[in-house]
Design a protein around this nucleic acid. Structure first.
Lengths: 150, 150
DNA sequence: TGTAATTCCTAGCATTATGATAGGAATAAT
DNA sequence: ATTATTCCTATCATAATGCTAGGAATTACA
C-alpha cells in the first residue's frame, strides 16, 4: 500500500511552497535543496502539477513555482491523483481509473468489498486534508515541543 | 497506494478456503482454477502463508491447503503483512518495517503526520476484518441481490 | 544587448519490484 | 508402482519507478 516517490516528493515540495504563499516564486533548485529532493526528478513532478493548475510557473531568472490556489483549497487527494493516477488499492474500486478485476461477480467479491472500504477511508483523509491543514498540524506539533514560558 | 498482486491473489484464495472450512484440504490447482489465479505463482504465495501458520499444508495425493485457524481469527492485516511485509504507505510510519525518511524532523513532518493517519485508517479496517467477516459480508450482498419471495 | 538563471521538453538509462515459469525432489494416498 | 500433490530453488520477463542528460525557450537584470 505504498505511496510512490513521485507523490512523496511532490507533497513534500508543495508543503514547503504552501508555507511561503504570497512570497515570490521558489525555484526548483531551492525547493530540492531545502527538502533534500532530487532536482532533475522534480521537473517531472512539477510538469503535471502545473498542467493541473496546482502550481503556477514562471520561467527565466528569478522565476520558479508558486501555488496556483490558496493552500486551503488544494487537497492532498488531488495531488496524489495528479501524480499517481489513482488512489484506490485495487483498480476495480477506483473512481477515476476503474478497471475490472478477475472476480466473476463484483457485487459479491469479498476482496472488492473490503478494498472499497479501504479506499473510502484513505480518500476520506486525503480529500479532507488541505495543504494548509497539513502545514498547520505540523506547526501545532512543533509548538508542543517548544518550552513554553509560564 | 496499490495492493500487490501477491496480496490480492493470496486474499482471494484464502477467502475461498475460508468458505470451505472443515472440509478436506484444497489443492492449489483447484484453488487456482476456481479463482482464476496463476497456479505456479500461487506456490510462492502459499509458502510464506504456511510458515506464518495461516494455512496448513498436506503433501501427497489428495493433499492441499486448509486454514490454520478459525476464519474468525485470521485478519486481513496479518495476511497482507505476511505477503507484502508492511501496510504503511511510507516506511517512516511503519510499525513492523520502520525506516527513516528524508524529513529532518519526524515529529513535525507534515507528510508523516498525514500518512500516519492514513496508515491507522487502513489498519483499522484490515486488522478488524477477519476472513469470516469478509466472506459473511459477501454472502449478505448476494442475498440482497436475490429475488426474495414475499 | 548580453549573461545568468530559470522553466520547459524529450529522450533515455538503471534498478528494483513484480509477476510468472521451469523443473525436479520429497511426500503421501491408493 | 503410480499418481497427485506440496516443497524448494533457480530463473526469467516485463513493467514501473526513480532518476539523469542535454539543450531549447524564456525572462530578469546589469
Amino acid at each position: 500500500m505504498r505511496l510512490s516517490k513521485r507523490s512523496e516528493y511532490g507533497l513534500r515540495a508543495l508543503f514547503d511552497l504552501a508555507d511561503r504563499t504570497g512570497k515570490s516564486p521558489v525555484s526548483l533548485k531551492e525547493l530540492a535543496a531545502r527538502n533534500n529532493l532530487p532536482f532533475k526528478f522534480m521537473e517531472h513532478i512539477f510538469l503535471p502539477l502545473r498542467n493541473a493548475g496546482i502550481v503556477l510557473s514562471q520561467s527565466g531568472a528569478g522565476g520558479g513555482y508558486s501555488l496556483g490556489r490558496n493552500p486551503k483549497d488544494i487537497f492532498l487527494g488531488e495531488i496524489i491523483r495528479t501524480l499517481d493516477g489513482t488512489i484506490a488499492p485495487v483498480s476495480c474500486v477506483s473512481q477515476i481509473a476503474y478497471e475490472p478485476c478477475s472476480c466473476p461477480d463484483e457485487e459479491t467479491c469479498p476482496l472488492r468489498l473490503v478494498m472499497n472500504r479501504v479506499r473510502e477511508a484513505i480518500v476520506d483523509i486525503v480529500d479532507h486534508t488541505s495543504l494548509a491543514d497539513a502545514v498547520a498540524e505540523s506547526k501545532t506539533n512543533s509548538n508542543d515541543h517548544q518550552e513554553t514560558p509560564t
